[in-house]
Simulated assay, not measured.
Amino acid sequence: MSDSRIHPTSIIEQGARIGDRVNIGPFCHIGSEAVIGDDVELISHVVVMGRTIVGNGSKVYPNAVLGGDPQNTKHKGGHTTLVIGKNCVIREGVTMHRGTDGSLGITTVGDNCMFLAYAHVAHDCVIGDNVTFSNNVMIGGHVSIGNNVIIGGGAGIHQFVRVGHHAFIGGLAALASDLVPYGMAIGNHAYLGGLNIIGMKRSGMARPEIHNLRHAVRMLFDRTKSIKSRADDVRAAFPESAAVADLIDFITTDTKRAYCTPPLDSAIEISDSDDNS
């Protein structure tokens, strides 16, 4: 704990592991199994419970509760874990729960993630790197979220849903189906309203690949066949496209949920105004 500062009003239970250069402000409570990485700052009134690991360089704001028991009746009190990656920002009132002893047993948050006020991460979720939860985002148990996903304020994601990398979920959306990589889900219940063109550009995706994905998604969701039966046609149409292959791999992976699709009364539209390429 070299160079660490711990306010005298905070409680650090015996057995907790505190890294170097940690700053723990007033009225925090760190449980006996917690691991606080180097250069972490807990501003004040932060609770870290159970077997919870907070990665190096993360910053946690007041009234966040990390590592609480899963809200799942199947959990019988076994030893489970929450792992939070490096350089995460966790704002006021955020809650994250450990995994359940009858399932994965671990909830995982990647590096460089941002969780705005009152967001919730449920048990057994797997969250990638560079993910942003806006205020009041709620995700159920066993949700998988890929890298570089942005979720708008007040959105809710059903348990067991998969969200592909670089996807965007609009504010107040209720997502009950799997969302393909680069997909943009909007509405309540959420539907596939196009592709996250802005996210593609920010990620450095080449212009030809953006065009490939646009055409591939139109083919995939044209409703003349089922989505999975269309997958082989799409893969064959773009044999040299790594982005399309990635999309089809997502579609052909076994899942517990249906797919987020365009509204029944319209084909998918991807506005040219979103992409000047």
Rank of each mutant, 00 (worst) to 15 (best):
V244Y: 05
I227N: 03
A243Q: 13
T252K: 10
T255F: 04
D222G: 06
F221G: 01
R207M: 04
R223V: 03
T253M: 10
G193I: 01
L220P: 10
D246M: 10
R235L: 14
F221I: 07
K225A: 13
A243R: 09
D222L: 04
I248P: 07
F250E: 11
M219P: 03
M200I: 01
E209H: 10
P239I: 03
I248E: 08
A206E: 14
V244E: 06
I210P: 01
L195C: 05
A245V: 00
G204F: 06
D254E: 15
A190I: 03
T252Q: 14
K225S: 13
M219D: 08
P208Y: 00
F238G: 02
A231E: 04
F250N: 06
S226Q: 10
K225H: 11
L213Y: 02
S203F: 01
A190W: 05
D233G: 07
T253R: 15
M219A: 08
F238W: 09
L213F: 03
V234T: 11
G199K: 09
I197W: 01
L192W: 06
T252H: 00
H189P: 15
A231M: 05
R235G: 03
M200L: 15
F238N: 03
A237K: 13
D254Q: 12
A237Q: 12
R235P: 00
